[in-house]
């Protein structure tokens, strides 16, 4: 009978590694959340643009990112940036690749949110004398972001799960740290089980929070 042992957790060296892992995971998640959202917003605007070129580019951007694996996108940046003479820390490469990758999902969600704001909303706002900018700022964005909130959170959860892929380009995030520890203590079952539970807890926590927030901001159109 196999006996589980989590003794390695008491080793301060490994605690230190895990701490580093958590920090890197948080850093990558944080920046990708912001950049992924901003890029997504910009591409969503492009896809609604009157200019055919911008619409085409936006559509291709989303199609391409969705129809190729993130791991390949990550390796692409990791291998090709140095080739262009750009030497970056793997953490930064991860942030670049993952921001771009999540922007595709965010773009589609934001676009759906923008489409939820029908023409009559724009007309009403215009008839009240709001300028285009004021209409976007006070009517369109508040409504579309509320509509998009839930799927955005689910993209965010996805983002957190995907950060684990970054260990493949030597980033010591949660998964990377676990892999290093496993290499020393050879307790793969315990370590990866623990990791699995940890990720589940994080996503569970986020979905709890998001449900509470959604209850506050939910609107019926």
């Amino acid at each position: 009978m196999y006996r589980l042992s989590f003794r390695f957790l008491e080793n301060p060296q490994y605690q230190e590694l895990l701490k580093e892992g958590v920090i890197n995971t948080l850093i990558i998640t944080f920046f990708c959340l912001i950049f992924g959202f901003l890029i997504g917003l910009i591409v969503a605007m492009m896809r609604r643009s009157k200019m055919k070129v911008l619409r085409g580019f936006g559509a291709f951007w989303v199609d391409f990112l969705r129809n190729t694996p993130f791991l390949v996108q990550l390796f692409f940046f990791y291998h090709s940036l140095p080739r262009l003479g750009i030497e970056l820390d793997p953490v930064i490469v991860s942030i670049i690749a993952l921001s771009i990758n999540t922007s595709a999902g965010n773009c589609e969600v934001i676009r759906a949110g923008l489409m939820a704001v029908k023409k009559s909303y724009y007309e009403c706002a215009a008839a009240l004398g709001l300028s285009t900018f004021q209409t976007v700022r006070h009517v369109v964005l508040p409504i579309s972001l509320r509509v998009a909130f839930k799927p955005l959170v689910s993209n965010f959860v996805n983002l957190i799960l995907t950060t684990s892929t970054c260990f493949s380009i030597t980033v010591v995030e949660l998964m990377g740290a676990s892999k290093i520890i496993n290499g020393r203590v050879d307790r793969p079952f315990e370590i990866y089980l623990l990791l699995l539970v940890a990720y589940c807890c994080i996503t569970f926590l986020i979905s709890m929070i998001s449900k509470a927030v959604d209850r506050k901001i939910a609107i019926t159109l």
């Binding site: 196999y2 799960l161 684990s164 998964m175 496993n182 307790r187 079952f189 990866y192 699995l196 589940c200």
Partner: peptide, 25 residues
């Protein structure tokens, strides 16, 4: 379903590939 949907595939893969053989010998 929930653990499978809420954890990274890599972790699941490593758990199965490296972890399971340890447990079941």
């Amino acid at each position: 379903m929930e653990p499978l949907r809420n954890s990274p595939l890599v972790v699941q893969l490593f758990l199965v590939y490296y972890g399971l053989p340890m447990v079941f010998g």
